[in-house]
Design a protein around this nucleic acid. Structure first.
Ligand SMILES: NC(=O)c1ccc[n+]([C@@H]2O[C@H](COP(=O)([O-])OP(=O)(O)OC[C@H]3O[C@@H](n4cnc5c(N)ncnc54)[C@H](O)[C@@H]3O)[C@@H](O)[C@H]2O)c1
Ligand SMILES: NC(=O)c1ccc[n+]([C@@H]2O[C@H](COP(=O)([O-])OP(=O)(O)OC[C@H]3O[C@@H](n4cnc5c(N)ncnc54)[C@H](O)[C@@H]3O)[C@@H](O)[C@H]2O)c1
Lengths: 229, 229
DNA sequence: ATCACGGCGTGAATAAATTCACAAGGAATT
DNA sequence: AATTCCTTGTGAATTTATTCACGCCGTGAT
């Protein structure tokens, strides 16, 4: 029902709202959120329609109420547990990053094939052998996986995840995962992202003049009526 | 001119083509590439229009020729050098990943504020103090940056990059970067991605039945004429 | 030869995402 | 109490992305 992109932006808005709450701000307007998120005010308002929280035309949105509403929309009430697969260079970085970040979306187990890692506790997270997957997943009700194993092993590990009842995979391996319908896969492809940066950096240099003109136009229009970006 | 999404997919197609070449495949059809990339054949063909290489209707695309064409389109002939900022948990993983991967898009310098890291060589990459940025960037003609410093430092570091003439930034810090027009920023936001997975995993469970039906329909149609996905 | 098949490139159609633009309303000001 | 200002929510319009669908062309079978 609600789009892919909207869900992503809602997550971003929530983080921005947390930042605002941290510095004591109590309410916020769509144009402020938009400026922080790099979106337009209209887009922010439209995205917020999905969560069903309504702002006031005089004070905008109440920061803590809106945060709560986005939480209701995005989060599972029971909290969702995730498992990490592959405790290599990237896996360890991810563990350190997600440890103690969002209370109700945390990595509760890690899996690897390396004997040296199995049984250890890294960043507060116990490390298991992949053989134990079904058991550990069932016991902890884990349905989300983060895949950080070598590309050659990725498909195989993904299939084990599916067999263990996983419903979502965040995939860092540069390999196209084939999973049955109903399992959601989100890829993070760093090579692709870096190549995009390289391409558009080049292009941007070429188009810079034009963009600056365009930007100045919108700056001018901003003072006129309506929501300009 | 050519869209954001198309550039990303071209990068993906290239990786898939490299895989095919590695296993000795000499030519490939749009529907095969589409299946591997999770796209439709029509989309593949349309994306390839951007690079200007034409396939044959009988043998599809020549793997090595197409790879070369995509390279001409995506890559800078002079090769683009990138610098890494922040050699922490994530930075080190990134260094290990990109080292010796793409020949003409590599990380040639790393910057940090930590005295213990400055002067060392990590994964074949020399580590400098951020004070040396302007000099090192000029000497090595670096215009791309990978930002992996703590969120609180990100904006500041980004401004230094811009001052040093950088045109593109791959940003891992969960902080909204404000840069002048003409500088391209691509964000990789792992928290957002994981929250998307959590959301759609839940949703997918709910919609699974419907999706399966839909998938079976398209399987059936696949044998009929036209390009179905 | 002729024909049928399967795939390519691409204009046209469709779908999806974003933006415009305006009614409605609350507070401050006159 | 009327006016002004600035905001929200949302239909409608627009822009962007994807998919359809068909003309064309080599190839291999008849
Ligand atoms: N390092 C990065 O920054 C980076 C960036 C982008 C993508 N990636 C991708 O992420 C993945 C991991 O990268 P890395 O640098 O951490 O690699 P790594 O070699 O450091 O770590 C891989 C880990 O996976 C484990 N492993 C191997 N097979 C396994 C299996 N079948 N089941 C469970 N665990 C298994 C290994 O024991 C090892 O601990 C790779 O696919 C890589 O391409 C890494
Ligand atoms: N670890 C992860 O997997 C992960 C995932 C997503 C996002 N991130 C983000 O990436 C960034 C880095 O994460 P990390 O886990 O590597 O953190 P980290 O603390 O391990 O490393 C940060 C590094 O940046 C250096 N640094 C600090 N200020 C600097 C400055 N002004 N200039 C240059 N270097 C500076 C520090 O010395 C340190 O080496 C953070 O913004 C984090 O939120 C990390």
């Amino acid at each position: 029902m609600v789009s892919h992109r909207t869900v992503g932006r809602l997550s971003l808005y929530r983080r921005l709202l947390n930042g605002l709450a941290g510095q004591g701000t109590r309410n916020v307007y769509s144009h402020q959120l938009a400026a922080m998120a790099g979106a337009t005010p209209a887009q922010v308002r439209r995205d917020l329609m999905a969560v069903g929280y309504m702002g006031s035309s005089t004070h905008g949105y109440d920061v803590s109420e809106l945060t709560k509403s986005i939480g209701n929309f995005l989060d599972d009430q029971t909290g969702q547990a995730a498992a990490l697969f592959g405790i290599g260079n990237l896996g360890r970085a991810i563990l350190s990053y997600f440890t103690g970040r969002r209370p109700n979306l945390s990595i509760v187990a890690a899996f690897d094939v390396d004997e040296n890692k199995i049984g250890r506790v890294i960043h507060g997270c116990r490390c298991y052998s992949v053989e134990e997957l079904e058991t550990v997943a069932r016991e902890n009700d884990i349905r989300l996986g983060i895949l950080a194993v070598p590309a050659a092993a990725a498909q195989n590990v993904a299939e084990n995840m599916v067999r263990a009842g996983f419903r979502g995979i965040l995939n860092f391996a540069p390999a196209p995962l084939k999973v049955p319908a109903g399992v959601y896969v989100e890829d993070i492809d760093m090579t692709m992202s870096l190549e995009k940066v390289a391409y558009f950096a080049r292009q941007g240099a070429r188009l810079q003049a034009a963009e600056i003109v365009e930007q100045e136009n919108s700056r001018v229009l901003e003072t006129a009526k309506g929501d300009q970006q």
